[in-house]
C-alpha cells in the first residue's frame, strides 16, 4: 500500500494466494487476478460461489497478508470501511454506540443525524442489536460504514439471506447514501441482477483459482435502470459471458 493521489483508482494485482490445509494439501484460491476500480465508482465482483471472492476481500481489508502480489487502495490516507456478510454488530453496545465506535475519537461528536435519518434508523439508536431484525442490523452495518466517510468501501454480499422486498429496500438505501457522497466501492455478490442494478463495473471471475474472466462496464446512470433496462443489460451480459452460470438471472 503506497500512498497515492486522491483520485487514484483501486488497483488489484494479486499474483497468487494459496491456502495450505491442516493435512498439508495446497489449494490455490487466486492466481494472476488483476483489475481496477476507477475512483468514485461502484464495482461488483461476480463469480461462481467458492471462487475466492471473499478471500480477495479479506486480502484487501488487510485481514490476510499471506499472498503474493500487491494492491493499491485509493485516497491519500486511506479510510477503509467494510460491510461484512454478517452484520457483525457488538451485541453489548447499542445502535448509536456501534456506529460511533467506528469513528476516530476526534470525530465522535460529528452529527450523524442525516445518516440515521437516511437509513431509517433515527428511532433505533438506543436499541441493542438483539432487538433488531436482520434487515435492520444490516442497515446499522451500512450506517457504520458510511459514518467514517470512507475513501474505499468493501461490501461482502451485504444483502444475502434477506427476503427480496427487504433486500430491494436496502439496495435503494445503499444507493441513496452512496450517491450522497460517492466513494470507491467494491461489492461481492452472487446476484447478477443486483450487480447490474447497482454497479458501474462488473468484474467477472472464473472458478477457482480465480482470475478475471472479463469486465462488464455499465455507463448508463443508475436512475435510468428500470426493470426493462436491467433485463436488457442482463441479456447483453449473457451474450458477452455465455459460460457464466446466471446467478440471480430471472
Amino acid at each position: 500500500m503506497r500512498p497515492v493521489g486522491a483520485a487514484a483508482p483501486l488497483e488489484v494485482r494479486i499474483a497468487e494466494k494459496t491456502f495450505i490445509s491442516a493435512q498439508g494439501v495446497a489449494l490455490t484460491a487466486l492466481r494472476d487476478l488483476a483489475f481496477e476500480v476507477p475512483h468514485g465508482s461502484f464495482a461488483c465482483l461476480f463469480g461462481p460461489s467458492g471462487c475466492g471472492k471473499s478471500t480477495l476481500l479479506r486480502i484487501l481489508l488487510g485481514l490476510d497478508r499471506e499472498f503474493s502480489g500487491s494492491y493499491t487502495l485509493p485516497g491519500g490516507q486511506t479510510r477503509t470501511a467494510a460491510v461484512f456478510q454478517e452484520p457483525t454488530l457488538l451485541p453489548w453496545r447499542n445502535v448509536a454506540c456501534n456506529v460511533e465506535l467506528a469513528l476516530p475519537k476526534a470525530a465522535r461528536k460529528t452529527d450523524l443525524d442525516w445518516l440515521f435519518e437516511a437509513l431509517g434508523l433515527a428511532e433505533m439508536r438506543t436499541l441493542y442489536p438483539s432487538e433488531l431484525s436482520l434487515g435492520l442490523a444490516r442497515r446499522v452495518a451500512l450506517a457504520r460504514a458510511f459514518a467514517i466517510e470512507p475513501s474505499v468501501l468493501f461490501l461482502d454480499e451485504p444483502f444475502v439471506s434477506l427476503d427480496e422486498p427487504t433486500a430491494e429496500r436496502l439496495r435503494g438505501l445503499l444507493m441513496s447514501v452512496w450517491s450522497a457522497r460517492p466513494t470507491t466501492a467494491l461489492m461481492v455478490t452472487h446476484n447478477l441482477r443486483e450487480a447490474v442494478t447497482l454497479s458501474d463495473r462488473i468484474v467477472v471471475l472464473t472458478p477457482r483459482p480465480a482470475r478475471v474472466r472479463g469486465v462488464f462496464d455499465i455507463r448508463l446512470p443508475r436512475e435510468h435502470r428500470n426493470r426493462q433496462v436491467v433485463d436488457d443489460l442482463l441479456r447483453a451480459f449473457h451474450i458477452k459471458f455465455p459460460e457464466q452460470a446466471g446467478g440471480g438471472y430471472a
Partner: peptide, 9 residues
C-alpha cells in the same frame, strides 16, 4: 469476527 471488525475500523 469482532477482532477483524476492530482491525478494519
Amino acid at each position: 469476527a469482532y477482532s477483524e471488525l476492530a482491525s478494519v475500523y
